[in-house]
Every structure is written in structure tokens, then in C-alpha cells.
Design a binder for these strands. Structure first.
Length: 399
RNA sequence: GCUCUGAUCGUCUAGUUCGGUCAAGGACACGGCCCUCUCACGGCCGUAACUCGGGUUCAAAUCCCGAUCAGAGCACCA
């Protein structure tokens, strides 16, 4: 590029720089020129010489004259991104199917809403499907609340989420059994009848127990007995992963265990229940989920599930691990709310003071404001605290 | 203890992939002014940040190393 053209570009930015900051500076002008003429990068010294000359001229000019000349030029302002960042793979044409997978042992709070809204928003953005899936595979320690199923659906609707289909894992147990048996037949899984403590000890040391070495027929037989003969705690189905994995909990993690406890959906029909990592992975594949959004506390589960996807030779969905949207104060967790209700400090899950979706509705918050707030907060991996003042401000703005 | 993350105005964030339009943008909050009988709304203006220390480079919020701080996980919970 000829020198006078470079000078012209340099002059434009030098004038602007001088107007904005009193006098033009070489580094600043150089950066702007380089962004417009990248070819010049190979010859920085020459560029610096030319630009210095221009800067000297400009800095000698009176302010009024600079103002007059700057007015002749137009400057492009960088546009700010609105909404969620693009997904590279989705832009290439892959469908974006997402799912929100709560445990119906309680009601939705703002933390759940973050995940749900992000999933819904991404599926809308790329015209994919958004599923609601209840991960209700522990009838005992995470006992499902019968009312929670319908309430969650209601809360999602209130938040403006378009649920394509609703699924309950408790109704898909046969499907999980089918895949479990496939794993046993392929030699990727085995029934372990070691005592819990013994298993933990082996795991810690990274050594295999005798059960791991049993043949397929034996394992299949024990698997059948899990449904009928073994008692709770006596047998589990484990996946063969890597006994030398640095994290001991990943070593041959448990996929199924026995729970003799009535489930509100299926009663006592099943007693062998899949664990989260198994059921979730199978369903994500079966439902053709391509984008999983979850809290970053699931990082380890991602590693666990990877082994399962590999065993089946399935493609693992894209994953976005996002920071938690935390609530400040004593009602931060679902369990805190439960206690507060039982102690009478809250009138219920729909108490306007509760950070539940029902609570926000009772308080008269505009659901669009919650949505907008969540989308603006983005998909960062670090935790952040809920800013009620800002939601109120957005709510006001929306009218 | 082991494994893994993260760190930008008071707060929430844009920017980090691929160093140069960043003398770091926006929103909320805060301060001032205008509008208004008052409040609210609206409009204009302002204060204010790259955790720290090294390194690479003409050039670092961006890349590399170290430190610090913070978070998460280490289940027959999800």
C-alpha cells in the first residue's frame, strides 16, 4: 500500500485519538491502523515511522481544526452481542435438542430456572426441541413429591418455556434394563456382591474384586437375581471403567442398585433402580439430545458418563457446564426452604419470600424479566448471586 | 489429602477461541442535572474494573509459567 494511503488512514485515527484524549498517541493509532491494514504487520518499524509523522502534525493542530476535520470521517462502532452466544456446531446445521431434567422431590427454584431457561432458549434459537424429563429414579432418598410433576410443568409454562414432550424416567425402567443387559452381554458390566465397605476399599486402592472377573452367564444370572432374590444393599451393577483412574469414584461406578420402597409413579413394580448417570446417559441418547446444560457440579458425572457412551459407541452430546445462580441468605437451598416451611417461617413453597418459581409468581414478578435476567447472565462457569433489584428493574422496564 | 474449575467497575456481565477497532463496552446500583405539584417513569452527564508477580512480543484483559483467593467434586443422591 502506498505511503500516502497509510498516512490518510493514520490521520483519521490520529485526529480521533487527539480529540478523545487531548493528544494522539502512537500505540493507539498504530493499533487502529494495523486492524485496518493487517498486511502492515510485517513492517512495524516503517509503519511506526509514518504514523509518528502524522501524529506530530495532528498534535500541532488547534482543537477547533481537529474537530472540523474529524467530522468528515465516520467511525464504526463495534456491535454488542445480544442474547446467548452462538454454538459453532449448531450454526453448521446440527439440531439443538435440549432437556431440563429435575428431580421431582421438590419444587423449582431460581437455580433450576436458570438451566431450564437456557435450554429452552437455545432450542428456540436453533429451532430444536426442548424436553422435560423427570429424573425420579430414587424413590427413597429423593422421594418424589406427586404434586411436583404437574407443578414443575406449570412453572416452566409460566417462564415461557415450550415443552415439546414430558418424560418420567420411572416409566422407562424396562428400557434401562434392556441396555443394562446389553452391557453385561458385551462384557462391559458386572454384578458386584461385595459389601459396600469392601467395595469402597477396593476402589480406593484401585483393585478389582472377584465379581469383576465373573463370566457373562454368571453376571446375567446375578442380574436376574437382583430383581428377585438379593436384598437391598447386597448387589449392584457396575460399569467397567478404569481402575487406575485418578478419581476413585469413577472406578467401575455403580449403575443400578436395589431399593425396596414404593415409588409414587410405579408403586412396587420395580426394585432395581438405575442411578442418575446411567439413566441420564441412556435417555440423552434415546431422546437424541444434542446439548446438555447443567451445573458445573456435574463435571465428574460427565467423566463417568463418557465411559458409558464409549461402551455403547454412542456420540456424547455437547455439554455446557454453567455456574450456579445462588441466592443470598438463609433460603439458598431447597433443603433450607423445606426446613423454613416446616418451622413455619414460610407459609409454603409459594411464599413470596421463597426463591422458588411459585414464590416469584406470588410476589408479582414478571416472568419475562426472570427470563431476560437469566439470558443476560449468560453461560459463565463461575457462580453468581441473584440480583433481585435488577430483576425488579427489568420487570419495570417491561411494564 | 486427591481431582477439577473459575477470577474484568459496588453488582451482573461484553471482550479471551485466533494478541492489534480496548485509553476496556453495556446493564443494574450510586451521584449530579433536566422533566414533574410530589413520587415514579423518561432524558442527559458522571464516578468506577482486567486478582497479584514474572515471561514472550513492536503490541497482552487476551498467550505461557508461578502465586493468591474462591468454588465444586471425591456416594448403592440427582
Amino acid at each position: 500500500m502506498p505511503e500516502n494511503q497509510i498516512k490518510e488512514i493514520a490521520r483519521k485515527y490520529a485526529l480521533k485519538n487527539a480529540l478523545d484524549y487531548g493528544s494522539a498517541r502512537l500505540g493507539a493509532v498504530l493499533n487502529k491502523v494495523l486492524s485496518e491494514v493487517p498486511d502492515f504487520k510485517g513492517n512495524i518499524k516503517e509503519a511506526a515511522r509514518i504514523i509518528s509523522e502524522v501524529i506530530n502534525e495532528v498534535n500541532a493542530m488547534p482543537k477547533a481544526e481537529i474537530e472540523q476535520e474529524v467530522a468528515k470521517y465516520t467511525f464504526v462502532k463495534k456491535e454488542e452481542r445480544i442474547g446467548l452466544p452462538e454454538l459453532e456446531w449448531a450454526l453448521q446445521g446440527m439440531q439443538v435438542n435440549t432437556r431440563f431434567a429435575p428431580n421431582p422431590s421438590g419444587f423449582m427454584h431460581i437455580g433450576h430456572a436458570k438451566i431450564a431457561v437456557l435450554c429452552d432458549e437455545y432450542s428456540k434459537k436453533y429451532k430444536g426441541l426442548f424436553y422435560l424429563r423427570f429424573d425420579d429414579t430414587d424413590p427413597k432418598t429423593k422421594k418424589p413429591l406427586p404434586e411436583a410433576y404437574a407443578q414443575t410443568a406449570k412453572d416452566l409454562e409460566w417462564l415461557g418455556c415450550n415443552v415439546y414432550k414430558t418424560i418420567k424416567q420411572s416409566e422407562r425402567i424396562e428400557l434401562y434394563y434392556k441396555f443394562a443387559e446389553e452391557l453385561i452381554r458385551n462384557g462391559n458390566a458386572y454384578v458386584c456382591t461385595c459389601a459396600k465397605e469392601e467395595m469402597q476399599e477396593n476402589r480406593k486402592k484401585g483393585i478389582a474384586c472377584v465379581c469383576r472377573g465373573s463370566n457373562k452367564e454368571e453376571a446375567l444370572d446375578k442380574w436376574k437375581k437382583m430383581k428377585t432374590d438379593y436384598k437391598e444393599g447386597e448387589a449392584v451393577l457396575r460399569l467397567k471403567t478404569d481402575l487406575a483412574h485418578p478419581n476413585s469414584s469413577i472406578r467401575d461406578w455403580v449403575m443400578f442398585r436395589i431399593i425396596d420402597y414404593a415409588h409414587p409413579v410405579t408403586g412396587i413394580r420395580y426394585r432395581v433402580w438405575p442411578l442418575y448417570n446411567f439413566a441420564s446417559a441412556v435417555d440423552d441418547h434415546e431422546m437424541q439430545i444434542t446439548l446438555v446444560i447443567r451445573g458445573k457440579e456435574h463435571e465428574l458425572n460427565q467423566m463417568k458418563q463418557q465411559y458409558l457412551f464409549d461402551a455403547f459407541s454412542w456420540t456424547i452430546p455437547h455439554v455446557l457446564e454453567v455456574g450456579t445462580l445462588k441466592v443470598q441468605g438463609e433460603l439458598a437451598h431447597k433443603s433450607d426452604i423445606k426446613i423454613a416451611i416446616s418451622e413455619g417461617r414460610l407459609t409454603g413453597w409459594d411464599d413470596p419470600r421463597a426463591p422458588t418459581i411459585m414464590g416469584f409468581r406470588a410476589k408479582g414478578v414478571n416472568p419475562k424479566a426472570i427470563r431476560e435476567y437469566i439470558i443476560a447472565s449468560g453461560i459463565k462457569k463461575h457462580d453468581s448471586y441473584l440480583d433481585l433489584q435488577k430483576i425488579a428493574a427489568i420487570s419495570k422496564k417491561l411494564g
